[in-house]
C-alpha cells in the first residue's frame, strides 16, 4: 500500500520536519495576528469614522479573497510592482498575519462591544479606577470569550498554511511528493501511503487543538 516507503532511511523524519516547517510558519503568524489583532480590534471600538472605514475595507477585502490569491498577490505582485524580492517564507508569514489579524481583530471587537456598559458603570460606582476595572472586570471576561475562538484560529491557521507549497516552500506535502518521486521504481504505490500519512499527521495536530477549544467554550459558556 506504499507505507513501507516511510520506513526507509530518514523518510519519516523528513516528512515530520516538513510538517515542522508548516507549523513554524503558522505559529509565527498566529503570534503576530494575536498582537496586531488585539490592537486593531481595540482601535475599532473607538468608532472614529475614518478608522471604521479603513478597517472595514481591510477586513472585507482580506476575508473575501481566497488565501491562495493573497499569497500570489504578495509573493508575485510585490516583486513586480515594488521590485522587492522576498523569500516565500516571508511572503507567507505576511499573508497569514494579514489574514489572522483581520479575523482576530473582528473577534476582539465583538468581545469588547459585547460587554455591557453596566459592567463599567458598576465598577466605577464601587470606586474602582479605570485600570482596576479593566484588569479585574473587563479583561478576564474578554479572555474567556476570546480564548476558545483564538485557539480555533490556530487550527484554521495550521490548515491554511498547507497552501505554502504552492509558492514553493518545501513543507510536508512537498516532501511527500519528493519521497514518492524518488521511490517511483521500488514502490509504485507510495502515493497512497505517503498522502494518507500526511492526512493523518494533519489530523493528529489539529484534532487535539479543536477539542481543547470546544472544551473551553463549553466550560465558559455562561
Amino acid at each position: 500500500m506504499g507505507f513501507e516507503v516511510l520506513l526507509k532511511g530518514s523518510n519519516m523524519a523528513r516528512l515530520l520536519s516538513g510538517l515542522g516547517v508548516a507549523l513554524k510558519i503558522s505559529l509565527i503568524s498566529v503570534l503576530i495576528s494575536i498582537v496586531l489583532g488585539v490592537i486593531l480590534g481595540s482601535i475599532m471600538t473607538l468608532k472614529k469614522p475614518v478608522i471604521t472605514f479603513i478597517s472595514k475595507f481591510y477586513l472585507e477585502f482580506i476575508r473575501i479573497m481566497p488565501q491562495m490569491v493573497l499569497l500570489f498577490l504578495v509573493f508575485f505582485g510585490t516583486t513586480k510592482a515594488l521590485g522587492i524580492s522576498m523569500s516565500a517564507e516571508t511572503a507567507s508569514v505576511i499573508v497569514f498575519s494579514l489574514w489572522g489579524t483581520a479575523e482576530m481583530s473582528d473577534l476582539v471587537r465583538g468581545a469588547l462591544s459585547g460587554i455591557p456598559v453596566i459592567q463599567y458603570e458598576s465598577s466605577y460606582s464601587l470606586g474602582m479606577t479605570v485600570g482596576q476595572t479593566y484588569i479585574h472586570v473587563i479583561i478576564p471576561q474578554i479572555i474567556r470569550r476570546m480564548l476558545p475562538l483564538s485557539i480555533n484560529l490556530v487550527t484554521r491557521m495550521i490548515k491554511t498554511t498547507s497552501l505554502v507549497m504552492m509558492i514553493g516552500i518545501v513543507e510536508v506535502l512537498k516532501v511527500g511528493q519528493q519521497i514518492i518521486e524518488a521511490n517511483r521504481k521500488s514502490s509504485p504505490n507510495a502515493a497512497f501511503g505517503v498522502y494518507a500519512t500526511v492526512f493523518i499527521l494533519y489530523f493528529l495536530v489539529c484534532w487535539p487543538i479543536s477539542i481543547l477549544s470546544k472544551y473551553l467554550e463549553k466550560k465558559w459558556e455562561s
Binding site: 498522502y195 500526511v198 492526512f199
Partner: peptide, 13 residues
Amino acid sequence: NTPLLVQLFFIYF
C-alpha cells in the same frame, strides 16, 4: 481537522 489541499492530494493521487 485536515486541510482541503491534503484531502485533494489523497483523493486525487
